[in-house]
Amino acid sequence: MSRRGFRKAKNAAFLTLSLAATLTGLACLAAILWTLISHGLAGLSTSLFTEMTPPPGSEGGLLNAIYGSAVMTLLGILIGSPIGVLAGTYLSEYGRKSRLSTVIRFINDVLLSAPSIIIGLFIYEIVVVTLGHFSAIAGALALAILAIPVTLRTTEDMLNLVPIGMKDASAALGAYSWRTIVSVLYPAARSGIVTGLLLAIARISGETAPLLFTALNNQFWSTQLNAPMANLPVVIFQFALSPYKNWQNLAWAGALIITASILILSVSARVVLALMQAERGDRR
């Protein structure tokens, strides 16, 4: 084979491999979604949303788990996102170039990919051991810590995107920084910050490891924040590994519910962001 022919063949071979890699990745996503839909739809029924998690061998639903997940995710976001947004504001507006900000940015990026089970252990040590029992509030705190890095990162990025002219205009009117931030920058970066919140919700609503030994689980209906609370991920974990067929079916249905909500959240986060970019493009 000529030198040129060899180079062309090598090129074709590697590009084919690259295409194969992409197809493999897409196939994995398709396979997971297909399994979830085919197994999950079979278990999907109205009793999922009206009945409690059953004892082995009898019928039931996931109502208490869905409720618990919603409550703890909501609480986690309510506690975590203000901290993330404020900290992001500091990094973007007050201490942009300071050494402290560089360190915080770095630590935040580390926390963003830190194993969530470590956060579970941390909350176990400081909340569960102190209170002496597992509780929904401990679970919510663990989720809050996981929500902070996501909201911090997006808030800082989005505030940095606001045109400097808007800030200058506000300062020229005599506004203090806080006024500029609250009345000019936050509204201008609103959709970006909302994207961060949606991504944070998507991130924490599927987390299992940090809930295992903070919120634990609860077979019954409980609205008490000071007691163990059922939640979808831990129920899926326990039911999927059980030998009972009806528990496994519930696990699949729960898995479908959780994945569908997370994918919808992630897609809408992207849509919000795209809309914002389109809007900004129009203004120019």
Binding site: L36, A209, F237, A255, I258, I262
Partner: peptide
């Protein structure tokens, strides 16, 4: 990116 958003427990059960 959606594959990245799928929670780890789903990978486990799958």
């Amino acid at each position: 990116e959606l594959l990245a958003a799928v929670p780890s427990i789903i990978f486990g059960i799958w």
